[in-house]
């Protein structure tokens, strides 16, 4: 059996400038912040982020000028408000953004998984999303009924980082609680690295299954979601999350926060 256990630094070492990265989880839930920190401290630059529901993952990397573009359905800090660095980058620095919807991100990943150039949807019809300068979405007449549909292009991340509760050394893993888009990211991305709360010989069969056939490497990182929550192992660290929301817009504070390892366990 393959043994895919590796150090997180080695996983991040396989990335190159300009890669499109997707992090699992959503908002302040199960964000792989240890992996985000490793990327933030690397020499990588010019990254593209694919965010189904972006949170501090997007905000940290944008705040540290690692990011060229963000393709997103949502970016925010849930009930703690807007993401301060993403906000500044969009309002003042002209950060390149592709705004999608939640379903369009899932549909784009699914198109990549299914090996087709696009999937059709009705999402976006009648809205301003389809006329944005960076919109990759295209309205076309349905070949069967003639009504308008929206083509969502396939979305294939170069690499996905997912935090799981339990994994075995070959990469079979389970996510307890809300899986967000992680099971799609695992199938759509060219490389998939898991950070695991625990690596065990036989993970308990519970929650959402990630098959080892999709997995490139497994890193044991207890607490790898940083201050975000990881059901049922760690609730949201409310004080740390509030501190982040209040201060992270200050880039010096953010740089120290990451450098001092406060974004990781």
């Amino acid at each position: 059996m393959p043994n895919k256990v590796m150090a997180l630094a080695d996983a991040v070492g396989t990335l190159t400038d300009g890669d499109h990265i997707a992090f699992g989880g959503g908002g302040l839930v199960r964000k792989p912040l240890a992996a985000v920190t490793e990327v933030a401290c690397s020499h990588l630059s010019d990254l593209g982020l694919i965010a189904f529901l972006g949170g501090p993952d997007v905000d940290i990397l944008v705040g540290l000028d690692k990011v060229r573009s963000v393709h997103f359905g949502y970016v925010g800090l849930d009930d703690l408000g807007l993401a301060p660095n993403f906000r500044r980058a969009r309002e003042q620095d002209g950060l390149e953004a592709v705004e999608a919807t939640e379903f369009m991100v899932l549909a784009g990943l699914d198109a990549a998984i299914k090996g087709v150039p696009f999937l059709p949807t009705r999402s976006g019809l009648g809205t301003d999303l389809l006329s944005l300068p960076t919109s990759p979405f295209k309205v076309f007449p349905c070949p069967l009924t003639g009504t308008d549909l929206v083509a969502v292009p396939a979305l294939r991340p170069d690499v996905a980082f997912l935090h799981v509760n339990e994994a075995d050394p070959t990469g079979n893993a389970f996510i307890h609680g809300d899986a967000f888009a992680d099971h799609l990211l695992a199938r759509a991305a060219r490389k998939v690295f898991l950070t695991a709360e625990r690596i065990v010989e036989r993970p308990a069969s519970k929650g959402t299954f990630i098959s080892r056939l999709w997995v490139t490497g497994v890193c044991e990182v207890p607490g790898g979601t940083g201050f975000t929550s990881n059901f049922p192992d760690r609730p949201l660290d409310r004080a740390a999350a509030a501190e982040y929301a209040a201060n992270a817009g200050d880039q010096d504070w953010l740089r120290n926060f990451v450098k001092d390892g406060r974004s990781t366990p």
């Binding site: 949502y74 925010g76 976006g124 009648g126 999303l129």
Partner: peptide, 13 residues
């Protein structure tokens, strides 16, 4: 910059 369109266009369709 608020939070993006999220699921509203999906719900509306």
């Amino acid at each position: 910059q608020m939070i993006g369109s999220r699921g509203i266009p999906d719900d509306a369709a």
